[in-house]
C-alpha cells in the first residue's frame, strides 16, 4: 500500500528544515556581529568611493542616479550576495565525504531539502544585513529614495535568491564529475559580480554591455532587486519578475535534470 504524504505534513517537514538554520544563526552571536561589521565596512568604502566620484564629476546625477540612489542600490546588491550561505561548498563536501548518503536516506526531496535550509539561512542573514547596512547608508546619505519600492524589491529578492540557489546547487553537483569545485565557484562569483552590477550599477556600463548584461540571469539576481528598490514602477516590476521567473524555470529544470543524473552516478563505499 502506498502512502501519500499530505501537503500539511510536507510543509511541516520542510518548515522544520527552514527553522533549523534560523535557530543555528541565532545561537551564534559571533555571526551576527561579523555580519554587521562586514556590511558596515563595505558600505563605508562604497560611500567614500562614490562621494569622490560624484564630487569629481561635479554633478548630482550620473546615468539617472543620484548618490543616494547609488548607495541604496549598492546596499541591496550587497544584501543579495552577503546573505546567501555557501551551498555549493556544502553539497560538494557532502559528496566528497560521502555524507550525502545520509541526506538521501531521509524521506525528503534532495532539492527541496537544500532549498529549505538555504531559505532559512538567507532569511536570518538578510534581516541582519539589511538592518546593519540600512542604518549605515541612512546615516551617510539619508533615507531610501522611494519607500514604495520596498515591497516589489522584497518580491524580486526572493526570486533572485531562488536563482542563486540553482546556480550554487549546480556548482556543488559538479563535484560528482571533478575533484575540486573551487575554480567554478570563484569564476561564477566574479562573473555574477561584474555582469550582475555588484560594484557598479549596470546603468553606468557602456550601453552595449548593459543591454547584454540586463537579459542575463546575473542581472536578475543582483541588479534587478536594487534597481527596483530605488526606482520602482509597475513596468519595471512586471519586466523584472517575468525575466526572473523565466530564468528560474530554465535553471530549475537544469538543476532537476543534472541532479537526477548525478545521483545515479553515486557509489557509496563502506559504512
Amino acid at each position: 500500500m502506498q502512502r501519500t504524504l499530505s501537503t500539511r505534513m510536507l510543509l511541516n517537514r520542510y518548515g522544520a528544515l527552514f527553522r533549523m538554520p534560523l535557530l543555528e544563526n541565532l545561537a551564534e552571536v559571533g555571526n551576527v556581529v561579523s555580519a554587521v561589521l562586514v556590511m558596515t565596512m563595505f558600505m563605508w568604502v562604497f560611500a567614500m568611493l562614490w562621494q569622490a566620484v560624484f564630487a569629481a564629476q561635479g554633478t548630482d546625477l550620473i546615468a539617472g542616479l543620484t548618490l543616494r540612489h547609488t548607495l541604496w542600490y549598492l546596499l541591496m546588491a550587497e544584501l543579495v550576495v552577503l546573505s546567501k550561505p555557501l551551498l555549493a561548498e556544502e553539497i560538494s563536501d557532502s559528496i566528497k565525504t560521502g555524507s550525502i548518503a545520509y541526506d538521501l536516506m531521509r524521506p525528503l526531496d534532495f532539492g527541496l531539502f537544500h532549498l529549505s535550509r538555504y531559505a532559512g539561512h538567507v532569511a536570518f542573514r538578510a534581516c541582519v544585513n539589511l538592518l546593519a547596512g540600512g542604518v549605515v547608508v541612512w546615516l551617510l546619505v539619508g533615507p531610501p529614495p522611494a519607500w514604495q519600492g520596498l515591497f516589489p524589491a522584497v518580491l524580486a529578492l526572493m526570486l533572485s535568491w531562488g536563482l542563486e540557489f540553482c546556480f550554487e546547487a549546480l556548482i556543488g553537483l559538479a563535484a560528482f564529475w571533478t575533484e575540486d569545485i573551487s575554480a567554478f565557484r570563484w569564476i561564477h562569483q566574479k562573473i555574477s559580480f561584474i555582469l550582475g552590477g555588484l560594484f557598479l550599477p549596470l546603468d553606468f556600463y557602456p550601453p552595449w554591455l548593459a543591454a547584454v548584461a540586463r537579459v542575463l540571469p546575473f542581472a536578475s539576481i543582483i541588479y534587478a532587486p536594487g534597481r527596483l528598490f530605488v526606482d520602482p514602477s509597475a513596468d519595471r516590476l512586471l519586466s523584472t519578475l517575468a525575466l526572473q521567473l523565466g530564468w528560474l524555470v530554465v535553471l530549475g529544470f537544469t538543476f532537476r535534470l543534472l541532479s537526477g543524473r548525478a545521483l545515479r552516478r553515486l557509489t557509496i563505499n563502506g559504512g
Binding site: 571533478t178 575540486d180 573551487s182 575554480a183 567554478f184 570563484w186 569564476i187 562569483q189 566574479k190 562573473i191 559580480f193 561584474i194
Partner: peptide, 14 residues
C-alpha cells in the same frame, strides 16, 4: 592546475 588557473581568471574578471 584548476586552482592556479582558476584564481588567475578570477582576478582578471574581478
Amino acid at each position: 592546475i584548476m586552482q592556479l588557473g582558476g584564481m588567475m581568471l578570477n582576478n582578471v574578471i574581478y
